[in-house]
């Protein structure tokens, strides 16, 4: 648990004493309390905890979609706003959010159009990321012609298209069934190994967190805070059946303990 503040080489995301309080109609709600977390290049960090624990809020602070009330945070050594303007990260939301009036390729080209890439470059990049998420040949289809899993893959492709080296994912597979989810998890690991991106991944599935991550951040609500940070001893190569190994079960147990500890005051 001590390694939260341990110095790491080359931190991509670095938060110190981060606090965020929302003003709501029912009074202030402390969404984040004293978050210290440093994420190194190439890490796959999962955030897990019950709803209201601030895991999504933290990701949104990194993405400059929420402003912290206190504390400091840097992304690629810059403020989150500067990092956002520099297009330092790709963000995958809970819903695919594809535009129904654009084809899959058109959707992937959307951020590229906004960022001013040339037409030929847009086409090349769209093809490349479509290959990457195993959707080659679906570029001309419209979103409604694709299954939910394929739509979410397209939204990942869209986040990858502009070569940001940070990928922030907010429960991207939350709405999918278990079987599709397993496959997408496998594919995501494969993608992470190939692209060497730094990934921040919000989930509330324990097996998903343990299977994917190099580090698991366990959070608890009211106020949203980090209760445990678990380094995964699992190797980078992870076949699906690693989930039956004793190491896997042990980590999953520790995550579960952490989640339970956060719940005592409920």
């Amino acid at each position: 648990m001590k390694d939260v503040n341990a110095p790491r080489t080359d931190p991509v995301i670095d938060a110190q004493g981060l606090n965020l309080t929302f003003q709501t109609a029912d009074g202030p709600v402390q969404a984040l309390k004293d978050i210290d977390l440093s994420i190194a290049r190439g890490e796959f960090v999962s955030f897990i905890g019950p709803s209201g624990c601030g895991k999504t809020t933290f990701l949104r602070v990194v993405a400059d979609l929420e402003q912290p009330s206190a504390g400091t945070i840097t992304v690629n050594g810059m403020s989150p706003e500067a990092a956002r303007r520099a297009r330092a990260y790709g963000y995958v939301f809970q819903a695919a959010g594809l535009y129904p009036w654009r084809t899959i390729e058109g959707n992937i080209r959307l951020p590229l159009e906004i960022m001013g890439y040339s037409r030929t470059e847009q086409r090349e990049r769209a093809q490349r990321v479509l290959d990457l998420v195993d959707l080659a040949g679906f570029g001309r289809k419209f979103p409604w012609q694709l299954s939910g899993g394929m739509q979410q893959r397209a939204s990942i492709a869209r986040a990858l298209a502009f070569d940001a080296d940070i990928l922030l994912m907010d429960e991207p597979f939350g709405a999918l069934d278990e079987i599709v989810r397993d496959r997408l998890n496998e594919e995501l690991l494969e993608l992470w190994k190939r692209t060497e991106k730094t990934i921040g991944f919000v989930t509330h599935s324990i097996p998903e967190a343990v299977y994917l991550s190099t580090r698991i951040v366990v959070m608890s609500p009211r106020p949203g805070r980090i209760t445990d940070v678990i380094e995964s001893p699992l190797p980078r190569d992870r076949p699906l059946d690693i989930r039956d190994s004793p190491e896997f079960i042990e980590i999953a147990h520790r995550v579960r303990e952490g989640l339970r500890a956060g719940h005592v005051d409920d």
Binding site: L65, R84, R85, R87, Y89, G90, Y91, P111, I114, M115
Partner: peptide
């Protein structure tokens, strides 16, 4: 939000 993340 998506548009914002792309700095549109």
């Amino acid at each position: 939000d998506q548009m914002k993340t792309w700095n549109a």
